[in-house]
Design a protein around this nucleic acid. Structure first.
Lengths: 126, 126
DNA sequence: AGTTCATGTAACTTTTTATAACATAAGACG
DNA sequence: CGTCTTATGTTATAAAAAGTTACATGAACT
């Protein structure tokens, strides 16, 4: 389900909302960014804008920390996960047809360019 | 799917985000509120906070307006829809057991009280 | 020509967020 | 024990975002 991924990766939430949703302080959220754990997009005015995926990551970090792990432990977990993803990616790319490759590319373009509010097929944005 | 409804009704988006998502100006969004079409929640600092449902309504209003309807036409459509909902509600309430009624009530309480960030069953917020 | 509707714009205030610097409690550790 | 590190709190200051209010305006209607 590709569309859901898109929605979840839209950076639309300001830090105040994230604070409420995660029950973290702004200080904590910015600190985890400083530690390169969750790096939000910025809007034109330099405000941090978070996605639903970012929220999930922050909640995960919160859990790990309360379980006694420290930031570098968490970084290791993320590194592990990332390398697994790369492997999976390699495995998949072996049997991608040109057609499929084009589709994935267009998905990426949509993600980078943001929403297209005039597209009438976007009945429900989320 | 009740959980999805809850997510969609969470007021988490500031007006700036809504502007981008709907391609409406702040003036337009506030005007539709003045006309009682989409009335957002407010945060502690009096800022308007919108839900995903609000976004959908705004997009619908935008469509209707560009189709040549005016605000009072749209109000009529909404009134129509609301009365249908009331009928449906009446019809359903006929065969609700006490058990079901209690469940619906607890759903309402959750909605009104906002998120419970400490509930460990909330694995993914959205 | 005058009125209404939907929207633009400008002025001014309050709230939110950013950055940076200093402070500190709790553990780790020689 | 004293010191260092880690994660977080606090405070000061600046800038961006958003609130309200009032006035302006083009298009459509009568």
């Amino acid at each position: 389900m590709k569309e859901k991924d898109l929605r979840r990766s839209l950076s639309v939430l300001p830090i105040g909302t994230v604070m409420k949703l995660t029950d973290l302080t702004a200080r904590q959220i910015r600190y985890y960014e400083e530690q390169k754990l969750v790096i939000p997009k910025r809007n034109e005015g330099n405000r941090r804008m978070y996605s639903l995926n970012d929220i999930d990551e922050l909640l995960e970090i919160k859990d790990y920390l309360s379980d006694g792990l420290n930031i570098s432990d968490i970084k290791k977990i993320y590194a592990e996960r990332a390398s697994k993803k790369v492997e999976e990616q390699k495995r998949l790319s072996k049997n991608l047809s040109d057609q499929e490759a084009r589709m994935l590319l267009s998905d990426e373009i949509i993600k980078v360019s943001g929403l297209n509010p005039d597209d009438p097929s976007n009945n429900s944005t989320f």
